[in-house]
């Protein structure tokens, strides 16, 4: 049995070492997810570091990250396991006719012919594993049903082989953009964490740690503008990923001071809708 983190403070410190700055609630929830061995469901707007948290946990604990990217049309064969039927066919043809069917049958439904997919793979691993199920809301309802067995008991039932139970429970992280309500059954089995835009202080720290070459004064200016942008009614408010991109842009342009003209020139990095840009121009009284 692994202990993932010793305490909430330990979680915060070790995640910080890998470059992921948490707030108290995030650190506590990450610790609880490890301590209770429950999956962690993370929701929040795009670009606030949902996926990054899973990666940071993997880095901090020295575990391997197994990732299942969800999309519409994802099915059992690509999430859980699949029989390698081509190899099975070859096997049947190769044995000829002298072997009894029952023997062949026992032969072709063995480990050798099983193609493991991320979910089964994560459960069967003996080393510490972080299982990231990314963008769960993109899948169909049926896949959620599939996840239930995996998430609650950490086991997979394969009719021909029996039930595979995790020898070592993985640290499971599910992320969602809330484009669809997940079913109650999935939510009930998970711990829930809503990641939101950070406060100005933490955002400054994040930008500084990600882009250490940028002058601190410019970082403060940048975060100031981003915070003001978030107060406007925009279609897509800028998130941390955009702040960091912006900081990198300023480095690339070798800008030493974020004045209004520079903001106006580089606004496209943070705002991706033209109506949002116009609104920002107007509200921040930027020169065109």
């Amino acid at each position: 049995m692994t202990t993932w983190f010793e305490s909430p403070d330990d979680a915060a410190a070790r995640l910080r070492e890998t470059g992921y700055l948490t707030d108290d609630a995030t650190a506590l929830t990450a610790y609880l997810a490890g301590a209770l061995e429950k999956p962690l469901l993370i929701e929040g707007p795009a670009g606030v570091g949902k996926t990054e948290l899973a990666k940071a946990v993997a880095r901090a604990t020295g575990a391997e990250l197994v990732r299942l990217q969800c999309y519409e049309g994802l099915d059992e064969a690509r999430a859980l396991y699949e029989w390698n039927y081509k190899k099975q066919l070859l096997r049947i043809q190769a044995t000829g006719t002298d072997q009894a069917w029952s023997e062949t049958h026992d032969d072709i439904f063995t480990e050798e012919f099983l193609l493991t997919r991320p979910l089964l793979g994560a459960i069967r691993r003996d080393e510490p594993t972080v299982l990231l199920v990314d963008e769960v809301d993109k899948t169909d309802i049926e896949v959620e049903g599939l996840l239930l067995e995996v998430l609650s008991d950490f086991q997979v039932t394969i009719p021909e082989l029996g039930t595979v139970t995790a020898t070592r429970r993985p640290f499971v992280v599910l992320t969602s953009n809330a484009s669809r309500e997940l079913s109650e059954a999935v939510k009930r089995r998970c711990l829930f964490l809503h990641l939101d835009y950070p406060d100005a202080e933490r955002e400054r720290a994040i930008v500084t740690s990600q882009v250490p070459r940028l002058d601190e004064r410019v970082v403060a200016q940048l975060v100031d503008v981003v915070v003001r942008l978030r107060e406007l009614e925009l279609k897509k408010a800028p998130s941390i990923a955009e702040s960091v991109d912006w900081a990198r842009t300023l480095i690339a342009l070798q800008v030493g001071d974020l004045d209004e003209a520079t903001v106006a020139r580089t606004l496209g990095v943070v705002l991706k809708h033209s109506s949002d840009q116009q609104r920002a121009m107007k509200e921040l009284k930027l020169p065109r």
Binding site: P8, L28, T29, L32, F192
Partner: peptide, 13 residues
């Protein structure tokens, strides 16, 4: 705040 966060993580979905 720790108690609040622990309750929030488990009860508010």
């Amino acid at each position: 705040e720790t108690v609040r966060a622990a309750y929030a993580a488990t009860l508010v979905k």
